[in-house]
Write a protein that binds this DNA or RNA. Structure first.
Lengths: 343, 343
DNA sequence: ATAAAAATTTTACGCGCGTAAAATTCTTGC
DNA sequence: GCAAGAATTTTACGCGCGTAAAATTTTTAT
């Protein structure tokens, strides 16, 4: 790395003694050139400071190495965590991931998809907003760009969906809770942001019915993605107007549960499964912070690794298949029950 | 929007009746063309579906509209939150922000800066890893790309720094705690990831000295960015070996405090300022979750809005000044004490 | 050793847009 | 209505690289 910064591939061709078209091939795919020339090129790259101009590269390539990762709400550590894993897989595979968050806003989601389109990405991993998504825009996008949906499914849109099996989440928590104590009531938002919430409620209803138990659904008010605040406010209202109908509460997701726990703490209601506890609380997701709540949260955990692995692999297959699958793939992974102190 | 998708600016020039160079000027800066032609262009944009090729645009422009936002650890909601605000400011000003996280790894930080360089960004907002940063790489980067550091300062590197006044954080918490009870001991990591932590410890020592009080610093073990876990483990060890030396603990940051609170809860140690409480706990940052801890956390809050506003404005000024300031600017904002239940 | 196959080099053009310079048209103030 | 000034159009070239086709070299297999 003694020489000056080289201006373009032409100059690098001159000093390295390799023709420009071969260099072009190499930068497009290092394995597409003969091993000996590859080594010559990589030797030269050590000696000379050259990186191809990324804009010129992408200008006429039909397929870039860009991959978009879009999540609905990055301030939710669940998405930060899964985005991190996806990003890592992309990097390992030689793609250029770019992370976007819709921050809960439909307009932003549309704008992200719009600008992603002009980046000519090889593929996109999209966790849509869900209820707030502009379905037509998303659908149109997926027709233009090879897209794998994750976390939140929209029927028929995208070439594949990878997520979690909501029924297995609720089945494991309901099973555990009913086996070890009073059957739970179900704590959720009246108008959830996300279709997973609806599936979880449906699962709860079905599972209670199978057990000949009366389902009790506590629908709390609130809009948006500030789930902790909504859960807290909802729980405070319940506690101030007679309390919970059961001594066991199952929350639709961990972030609501975090809010609920904070309300219980404030009201002096002791949560846990031990003696002296007034309430058992369980939940779903295994949010990165649920280990540190007071008490620590019993929850059904996403298989983060499997979801992110499989989502990326699916996208990779999709790209190699030319952007289309013969038929839409749907893969969901089961939850794993994590017993902690709250129930 | 009835017509077909136009292939390039040439075609759009043909159908709109505007010359291509004028269109080029318009897309570069809509205000640089006459009002009447601007309206004609925007009318045509309604009728025809055309967006300039972003790669071709950036290829020869010395200055793109790209802005990089780099944070050290996106899974920390503090950074997610401030990144969101920065992103929003950039979008409002017509820039194209891209968010990157080093995920706590030096190598990743270097790779991010490397690939950012080839995106020819107009400017970069960089919150460096801190101790783990490869200072030489960061410095070299800042020489090539107009960069404003935020959150974590590296002396002399970048054209400006915008952050929080660590002394004001500690001064307010120490002042409050000593005024209302026993002086605090200081709970921190032995080898903090971030220079802010060192400044906070120094402030604590100075403030205690000014009051003729004995500083008590509890240094806990642990590497990396899993602060909650580190705080929890450290607190558990302390609780299992004699307990805290004072009935008041000031944590270096909220994430450590979250871990500490979870340890206290588990050990049955009641935290708060009321009667029957064994420990008061306060902290710094006003982490987005500190409102929902049990008990809710008394903390010194970052002025998120001012920091993000001013960081963006500084970058904007820097860009308009051609990428260099006559002298490096440093701006820090004071904390605001947020009294909650933990102290 | 030799022919066939594979990889590389040479040559040449195109991508979509930035941008400079000169010619033309439009706006503005008087 | 007119001249000066401003904006636009015309013309033309360049950016850095992708890529196609033909010529050449290298490798592989017989």
């Amino acid at each position: 790395m003694v020489e000056r910064k080289l201006k373009n591939m032409e100059e690098f061709a001159a000093v390295s003694g390799i023709s420009r078209p071969t260099l072009s091939k190499y930068f497009n795919n290092p394995e597409s050139v003969r091993q000996t020339t590859r080594l010559r090129i990589e030797d030269a790259l050590q000696k000379y400071d050259f990186r191809p101009n990324i804009f010129a590269m992408n200008q006429n390539r039909k397929l870039t190495k860009n991959v978009g990762i879009v999540v609905p709400f990055l301030a939710d550590p669940f998405f930060t965590e899964i985005a991190r894993k996806l990003e890592q897989r992309c990097l390992e595979a030689g793609f250029h991931p770019t992370l976007y968050s819709a921050h809960g806003q439909q307009q932003l989601e549309n704008e992200i998809l719009d600008s992603l389109r002009s980046l000519k990405p090889a593929g996109v991993l999209l966790a849509p907003l869900g209820r707030a998504s502009d379905k037509l825009s998303v659908e149109k996008f997926c027709q233009d760009v090879p897209t794998v949906l994750f976390d939140s499914n929209i029927e028929g849109i995208g070439e594949a969906f990878v997520g979690s099996d909501n029924f297995s989440f609720v089945s494991q928590t309901v099973d555990y809770l009913t086996r070890t104590g009073e059957p739970p009531s179900f704590f959720e938002m009246r108008t959830p942001a996300n279709p997973n919430a609806n599936k979880r409620r449906a699962a709860y209803e079905q599972l209670m019915a199978e057990r000949n138990l009366e389902p009790r659904i506590l629908k709390i008010e609130g809009e948006g993605w500030a789930f902790e605040q909504i859960g807290r406010d909802g729980a405070l209202r319940i506690l101030e107007t007679g309390g919970f109908p059961t001594n066991t509460v199952l929350c639709s997701n961990d972030r609501l549960a975090i809010g609920l726990l904070s309300a219980c703490y404030e009201k002096g209601l002791r949560v846990g499964r031990g003696a002296g506890c007034a309430l058992r609380v369980a939940s779903h997701d295994d949010h990165p912070f649920s280990k540190f709540t007071c008490p620590s949260l019993t929850t059904a955990a996403h298989d983060y690794d499997s979801v992110s692995d499989h989502a990326f692999k699916t996208l990779n297959n999709l790209i190699e298949a030319g952007g289309r699958f013969a038929r839409r793939e749907e893969t969901v992974f089961s939850a794993r029950l994590v017993l902690r102190s709250s129930a």
